[in-house]
Amino acid sequence: MQAPIRVLVCDDQAMIRAGFVTIIDAQADLEVVGECGDGRAAVDLAHELRPDVVVMDVRMPVLDGIGATRLLAGPDVEAPTKVLIVTTFNLDEYVYEALRAGASGFLLKDARPAQLLQGIRTVAAGTSLLAPEVTRQLVGRYASRIRPPQRAQEGSALTPRELQVLRLIADGLSNVEIAATLSLSPETVKTYVSRLLSKLGLRDRVQAVVYAYRHELVT
């Protein structure tokens, strides 16, 4: 039998944290190995417990979720920990910075329990996760803060089809949805995604979304 996915839950609101723990622990393939209420504790516990996924809030005392994510999953971390940001859209304009800090994805706190559970499984499997219903709004709202002064030309390294796929990723579409949109098989889309990530030196779909908006490949 496969070992359960080990999860660390970090949220400064005790009731929300308890709810997450209850939902996650009720699953046979998931196990909460620790919980905490601030980012500094999350970093310390993650180093001690080595969870597969950290479910992380953004606004917390001592060290916020962005700083904690950077310490756990940033570009300078040799063995990054997968971080799933679970946040409140109308409060956290800093989610973008968390994604740039290395988070593997984000969900909203009003997501259904099934979405949270699937999000943890998705991130644990090495696939990034973006909540499709807010990707365009969130990214579009804050993209101007991270755009370079001049339009970058790196996107020209992509073929027209790869550029299409990148733009659809930035719109929050899954591989299956991209396949339906472009009349391709999901396997073909997966190949395009892998190829464009490799060409652009990106780690995952989250970085692809940030890249697309930062370089004005979508608006």
Rank of each mutant, 00 (worst) to 15 (best):
L8T: 04
C10N: 09
D12R: 03
D12T: 05
A14C: 07
M15I: 07
I16F: 10
R17N: 09
G19I: 08
V21H: 06
V21C: 10
I23N: 07
A26Q: 13
A26E: 12
L30Y: 00
L30S: 01
V33F: 05
C36W: 08
C36V: 07
G37M: 13
G37Y: 09
A42L: 09
D44Y: 00
A46T: 02
H47G: 11
V53L: 05
V55M: 13
D57Y: 06
R59E: 15
P61H: 00
P61G: 03
D64E: 02
I66G: 05
L72T: 06
P75F: 05
P75Q: 14
D76E: 13
E78T: 12
A79F: 08
P80F: 00
I85C: 08
V86C: 11
T88N: 08
F89I: 09
L91F: 15
Y94T: 14
Y94W: 14
Y96V: 14
L99W: 02
A103I: 01
A103T: 06
A111S: 09
R112W: 06
P113L: 02
Q115N: 04
I120G: 02
R121N: 04
A124T: 06
A125V: 02
T127L: 10
L130P: 15
A131Y: 15
A131H: 15
P132C: 10
P132H: 09
P132S: 11
V134Y: 08
T135H: 11
R136G: 14
Q137P: 15
Q137K: 15
L138E: 15
A143R: 02
S144W: 11
R145G: 12
R145M: 11
R145Q: 11
P148H: 06
P148K: 01
P148A: 03
A157T: 11
T159A: 04
L163D: 14
L168Y: 00
L168K: 01
I178E: 05
A179C: 08
A180S: 13
T181C: 10
L182T: 02
T188N: 14
T188Q: 09
K190H: 12
S194W: 11
S194V: 06
L196D: 07
R203H: 03
R203K: 00
R205G: 15
R205K: 13
A208H: 03
V209G: 14
V210I: 12
H215F: 12
H215L: 07
T219K: 09
